[in-house]
């Protein structure tokens, strides 16, 4: 039962922590669109652009992308698990609820 959940979490860690180094650095579809049309000139710098993990790095150093990814996985898992666990139906007869 639990094996699947642990495996799923491990896959996410592997993707964010290791595979992330192989991601393309080119602009994505929206960025490419706003760059090619000149809309990007109106883009403002992100208020947190100078923060520690901005752009999935550590202090602007891309070598730590994997670390940023692992941190993100932990934070997203903690936030989402807490929210969904709090929201869930707590009735003991969950098998009847379906």
């Amino acid at each position: 039962m639990k094996k699947f959940f642990i495996g799923f979490a491990f896959v996410s860690l592997l993707i964010a922590g290791v595979l992330s180094y192989f991601a393309s650095g080119d602009p994505d579809g929206l960025d490419k669109t706003v760059e090619d049309t000149g809309i990007a000139e109106h883009a403002q710098e992100h208020p947190f652009a100078g923060s520690a993990f901005a752009d999935y790095a550590l202090g602007g150093d891309d070598k730590f992308t994997g670390l940023a990814g692992v941190l993100g996985v932990i934070v997203v898992l903690a936030v989402s698990f807490s929210l969904f666990w709090f929201l869930r139906k707590r009735s003991p007869q969950t098998d009847l609820a379906d």
């Binding site: 896959v11 996410s12 964010a16 898992l77 698990f81």
Partner: peptide, 21 residues
């Protein structure tokens, strides 16, 4: 399903890091 939902969010975060050409 609550733990599954947490893992789905986590997986989406991880895969969103992978820009493909």
């Amino acid at each position: 399903t609550a733990p599954m939902a947490g893992l789905v969010a986590t997986f989406i975060f991880a895969v969103q890091m992978i820009n493909f050409p």
